[in-house]
Design a protein around this nucleic acid. Sequence first.
DNA 1: GGCCAGGCTAGCA
DNA 2: TGCTAGCATGGC
Length: 294
Amino acid sequence: MVELKLRPGHLYSFEATTRRLTNFEKTAYRFLDGFFYRTLRLNDRPLAVGVGWDGAQIRVRVEEELSEEERTLLKQKIRRMFSLDVELEPFYEQMKKEPRLAPVIQSRKGLHFVLDPTLYECLIKTIIGQQLNLAFASTLTQRLIEQAGEKIPFREEWMLVFPTPSQVARLDYEDLQRLQFNRRKAEYVIDISRKITAGELNLEALERLPDADVVEELTSLRGVGRWTAECLLLFGMGRRDLLPAADIGLRNALKKAYGLDRQPTEADVRQWGESWIPWRSYATFYLWDFLSGS
DNA sequence: GGCCAGGCTAGCA
DNA sequence: TGCTAGCATGGC
């Protein structure tokens, strides 16, 4: 058993940050003994990793032995996934000037993104979530993991590991249709996985590109529109200034926060968002959190 | 039963 | 370039 500690570089609320894990990310995370457990891969080795909080630091728990290299990798991965090096004070300062948003922001101080461990997982989950209500999207994701992923032992039981591109590439469209994916969504998910497996698509290489280029590259894929590309930049890469202005959730959140009697248009959102630059991702994220009722 | 879900593509003007 | 039907199901 290995336990590591990681200190956040800046103001950090573990409680606010993990609140959504048992809700929106409930297919990935399992809460047990004060730790949020999920599986991820270190150099292709699947592991169950628990993440908790000791009041000042993140506790990371793995119930197997790790090499020095794996420890280093795990630390890097968790720091990145839990946004431990993101400094939000400038964001809070800037948003004080937004009277209608300030209460939403100030009551969530220390809330950070929890990123997916891989860009592939993020992209596939986002495609599955297109247009569907979150509950059903989560059901479909879970079914994909059960169909294509592998199981690893965990405390007398097992946990599922999100499948690799090659594991999904081996499926037929009909396999996913049986899980109640619509035909086109089955094609998007499998075709993209096959492209990655064939070496025709390298998601990691996109990390080096600016936002606009990532959107351009990704939207050339069948099944990926602007919203999906922006979600990858947000929840896969943690980019700080994305505004998914057409997003239904964001528009509903603004309607609620601003006390409007109709849903604002995409153009409204873009215009209001101008004054959130360069923190539009975080403004969006805090509004989503506000909408989900906490 | 009807309409909307944290969209996208293909087909048509 | 811009508009819209269709998708497959759950939740309200």
